[in-house]
Design a protein around this nucleic acid. Sequence first.
DNA 1: CGCCCAGATAATAGCGCTACGAAATCCATG
DNA 2: CATGGATTTCGTAGCGCTATTATCTGGGCG
Lengths: 346, 346
Amino acid sequence: MHESGPKQRNRRKMQTVTMTDVARAAQVSPSTVSLFLRRPAEVSERIGARVKRAIDDLGYVPNFVAGGLAAAGSRVVSILVPSLHNSYFSETVTRLESILAPQGLQILIGFTEHSEQREERLVRTSLSWRPAALVITGLSHGPAVRKLLEKTSVPLFQMWETGEAPIGTAIGFDHREIGRASARHLLDRGRRNLAFLGARMDQDTRAGQRCAGFLETVRTAGAEATVLELPVIASAEAGVELMRKVREIGGIDGVLCSNDTLALGVTFEARRMGVRIPQDMALMGFGAMEYTGVCEPPLTTVRPSVDRIANEIGKRIIDRDGNQDAPDTHGEVIDTGFELIVREST
Amino acid sequence: MHESGPKQRNRRKMQTVTMTDVARAAQVSPSTVSLFLRRPAEVSERIGARVKRAIDDLGYVPNFVAGGLAAAGSRVVSILVPSLHNSYFSETVTRLESILAPQGLQILIGFTEHSEQREERLVRTSLSWRPAALVITGLSHGPAVRKLLEKTSVPLFQMWETGEAPIGTAIGFDHREIGRASARHLLDRGRRNLAFLGARMDQDTRAGQRCAGFLETVRTAGAEATVLELPVIASAEAGVELMRKVREIGGIDGVLCSNDTLALGVTFEARRMGVRIPQDMALMGFGAMEYTGVCEPPLTTVRPSVDRIANEIGKRIIDRDGNQDAPDTHGEVIDTGFELIVREST
DNA sequence: CGCCCAGATAATAGCGCTACGAAATCCATG
DNA sequence: CATGGATTTCGTAGCGCTATTATCTGGGCG
């Protein structure tokens, strides 16, 4: 083996440029460099220019790890969502990023996949970064997670759901009420034989809540309601399969899908079967995904208040950031609402 | 104001539990606690149990910021993608996360939105975290970004594209060749009057490459090729609009969309117009999005090797992690290929 | 029965930066 | 030209942890 060279195997030192190097080059103290980086206005123009020049010359890249340790808290916001499969979660993340990034806050992301175990691991590692805030999806968590969240001093936001006694600040909307509103809409359209199509609702508790609200209202009205469910992730393909089941059952004249993706699949298969929407069967989704406005027929759906959720959370995180005297809103519940978008499919 | 209390405004100390606290509770030295956390096997069972008990009792959460500083490198991988609007990027991120998370690596995410300026800011902050690796989308970057990337010692992966002389390790496929292959397919089907539908290709250079490859092959074959483009983000709605333009032009019998989302919109509008796919017009997309298999008609599309990209990157990151003697693959180009999925739309 | 080696535990020395208070500088007054 | 207050700059002391080295412990063996 031609492996040789000065045995420098340990401590991958690398010639990393440190703040001290910059200070030396600019002929100032490290403190001044640090100050210039954090609050440039408090450094005189002359010195500032010199420091800036040194930084550029040396290609200095600050070390946030060291900075975070010294400052006791990192400029990172950790976001935990079930997955990115639903475009509304990607949108939430996107929107939050765009609000937080200008403040120099970075996004640490994790996917729980609706698994308590994964969630615990993620919460644990997230907290280990001493983030400026932790944003987590949903209100119900396993006991281990609950304990971690209750104990931490990191500002906590539980999003996408409202409910009683949140651990942190709850920002979201009432999924049960969405189910009810959807049911009312279908009943208003004169449909009496309804179905809820879902996918893995044991895991997606929010879809479960929408389903529960739906059933409640339908049954209270004395109409029929069936639940059809597939043990797979929601997809257009799953929608196709569910539509076949609907056909088998027969007589169903109104359908609420747990998700627009499912509903899209239903439109495809309905067309192939010759089932006319909405004449033969009214169809509703959830999520207000982009294509619902242009598909055939355009879909009635519910727009979750993604932007408002992100805005409210972002605002609070920024408020609290750099101003630890900001009011602690833990325990507060903010309902951002939802919007029923009625289109031709009903 | 009832604000009073011992003037403890500074240094938000919080009663954070440190490793030293754990050590004290377990009657061992901090070193032992640290060792137990990092390599439990090297601690005797008796002591290990004691430490574990203390950790649980105190609810200790390690501080990765401090750990990262001491160890000179954080257990974070930074991923920069244009956005999450395209499901193939979300999938890349998802897949990478699932590979990296079991190794205790967290994902720091950023969205460039195809903006050089944003990209620079993101690269800068990413590097500031001294991540275990930086994964960035694409091969071409502004001069400032190039300089940062060339200078850093952080393992760099440039994904989703192949090309010459990458700065880090390039893992992706040849978009030009996808354009060519798509064109060949359409020509094989006897189409002679073709169009490429795109959205904001000035920004999405990879879509631009597919377009270029497409035009090259079509024109070489002596057939017609038009480019129709909209200055908006790709969406089904944009697809609808582009289909209207196609109609206006008239005579087009084969279309390649820069993206399945666009293609989906085209199918909707074509149906409304009475344009039959593929009889009147063949249609292709890109991305192999989930619904392409079940929509009406099922779409011919190209499956980018998302999984392979993620796997190859993940493997290399893990190799290099904790074993800095692993081969540095910078400069290497790995072509993960793509797959043409032929369905009824052509 | 003492000696040595391996394995387990502990002590030490920072990692690169920020917060804080002290020192130095500036500049308008008296 | 001295003087005080407002700036601007600097020195010091860690932040909580890990890597490395040193120390300790407990057998196995001559």
